[in-house]
Amino acid sequence: MAHTKQTLLERRYSLLGLLLIAPTVLVFCAVIVYPLISAIYLSLFSIYTPTLDGEWVGLQNYATLLAKGEFWYSLRTNLIWTVGTLSLQIVFGIGMALVLHQNIWFRSLARSLILFPYFISTVVAVLVWKWLFNDLYGILNHLMMGAGLIEFPIDYLGSMPNAMVSVILVGAWKYFPFVVIAVLARLQTIPGQLYEAARIDGAGPIARFFDVTLPQLREVLVVIVMLRAIWDFKEFDLIFLLTGGGPVTSTQTLPLLVYKEAFSLNQMGMATAYAVIMMLIMLVFMVLYIRRTRTEDGL
């Protein structure tokens, strides 16, 4: 008797469970699975964007893009941008978090100020940076010439490698606060006695950073790198607004290429094929990355 009662209860529970997750599953399907599948579907057509008329071409789009030099060049640009800006974000982020973790008198003010670049809208930020960088009236050139560091104004955005360096730096400036906040939160949970034990064991400040702090930050860094890598890889507005992919195509990353295909060249099918390839690349990277960090943790 008790047995059947229990299974009834169990069944009620699992029904309740289904009901509770159903809305999430439905929303997930509507906003993620459907667009994903329709993107893959669209990538099999040749579509003229304004009319959305198209004909079935099968894998032709993929064959074309993989054979195109522009794809590989943009992929390379994309990787340079992602690796460059991400490493700067991590280095500055950790550095700034360490500074803000100290007992300095302006700590709470600094902690709120540090979030400023992260809060500010990309459009506004890019506009300000473009003024700063401007080769005719930019304050950066003005100051550097005034200080005698340079003789002629530097073209920060219109020549290479300056444009790439500038984009990477602005990206790092905009997104390092995220790293600061995440790392700072973790730093505050590291037991102080670990540092004291290390001091007694004869570890100096640098050894304490590498032997106590960094290992404790490992897990949070894994997450930060993963999130930031995804976001940076598909970053569009910052680069688009700052250089528009130029000079010529020197800073044209894959998202910019997708935009160009879809709305300048009006090749929606081609554009979705790029987008699908981008997704696959990120997927491969993430799987490798998660594998690696997991085996390193391996207990």
């Binding site: 037991p191 670990l194 004291e196 034990a197 001091r199 007694i200 004869g202 106590v212 290992p215």
Partner: peptide, 20 residues
């Protein structure tokens, strides 16, 4: 004299072992 140079060793209440 810095803790590391005092020729002492300490056992903490929470042990403070390096977790990694």
């Amino acid at each position: 004299v810095a803790p590391g140079d005092r020729d002492i060793a300490m056992v903490f209440q929470s042990y403070a072992l390096y977790p990694h």
